[in-house]
């Protein structure tokens, strides 16, 4: 019969329409469907039915641990009374070298005698170039640069707001532990293992180079069956 296909299709639309109310009823006794964390979790997961709208900004989808937005630098938690903790960055420059759009600028710190110091003097990321690829975080041997989860960066002006300097980039370790707890834990473990390996090697040939440390860290992250 001509037109049957259209009628059937409308049936699908009708089912969707009804389904949203069925879902409403299901949550009616459990604190309502809207602005309810539990309902929100179910609705956004693989079993969600009905209307799946995220009421941003009131509700926000959680970001997974591996989520990557613009990078930030990890520092120690600042000691009481101080604003900044110790930088983890050693200004080895690997992030600047792997960065595909070359959006990282690092000025290596100098000791008074002119020799390089394992600390960045200045660190800039131009987030107008950054492609959020995550290479810097992936290849950093010291876990010192990480991808942030804060995506709410809209601004009215880019001339000043879009080049992040060291102050803007630095965030304490506790922040990283907060946004990616499992990943941070896995990294802690890997660092401990690397530390142990380094101590062993030191006994053997008297010298443990930082490269070896880097090697161990990245190796363990992949080899120990760690998921992060």
């Amino acid at each position: 019969m001509y037109g049957l296909g259209i009628v059937k299709g409308m049936g699908v639309v009708l089912r969707h329409f009804i389904q949203s109310y069925v879902d409403d009823l299901k949550w009616a006794g459990k604190g309502g469907r809207y602005y309810n964390d539990e309902a929100f979790q179910v609705r956004q997961g693989p079993y969600g039915e009905g209307v799946k709208t995220v009421f941003y900004p009131e509700e926000k989808l959680s970001t997974p641990e591996r989520f990557r937005f613009v990078p930030f630098l990890v520092t120690d938690d600042p000691p009481p009374g101080q604003r900044w903790g110790h930088d983890w960055c050693t200004s080895c420059g690997i992030c600047a070298k792997v960065c595909p759009p070359q959006c990282i600028w690092i000025e290596r710190g100098k000791q008074p005698n002119g020799r390089p110091k394992p600390e960045p003097e200045k660190f800039f990321i131009d987030i107008d170039l950054c492609m959020n690829c995550g290479y810097c975080a992936e290849f950093c041997p010291f876990d010192a640069i990480k991808m942030d989860h804060d995506y709410e960066l809209a601004s009215y002006d880019r001339s000043s707001a879009h080049i992040h300097d060291k102050e803007r980039l630095s965030k304490p370790l506790s922040y990283w532990r907060e946004i990616a707890p499992k990943k941070a834990e896995a990294e802690d473990l890997a660092r401990q293992m690397a530390e142990a390996a380094k101590a062993k090697k030191k006994d053997k040939d008297g010298e443990a180079r930082e490269e070896r440390l880097a090697e161990a860290v990245s190796r363990q992250l992949y080899y120990q069956g760690l998921q992060y």
């Binding site: 995220v54 941003y56 900004p57 926000k60 989808l61 937005f69 613009v70 987030i127 107008d128 950054c130 492609m131 959020n132 995506y151 709410e152 960066l153 809209a154 601004s155 009215y156 002006d157 880019r158 707001a161 879009h162």
Partner: peptide
């Protein structure tokens, strides 16, 4: 912005939908 006046910039590559809505709220 070299050619047009821009009112709001939303960084990211690409910005997630939520980041875009954030920009629209701005």
């Amino acid at each position: 912005d070299k050619f047009l006046p821009v009112d709001v910039y939303v960084p990211g590559c690409p910005p997630t939908p939520q980041a875009l809505i954030n920009g629209l709220i701005a």
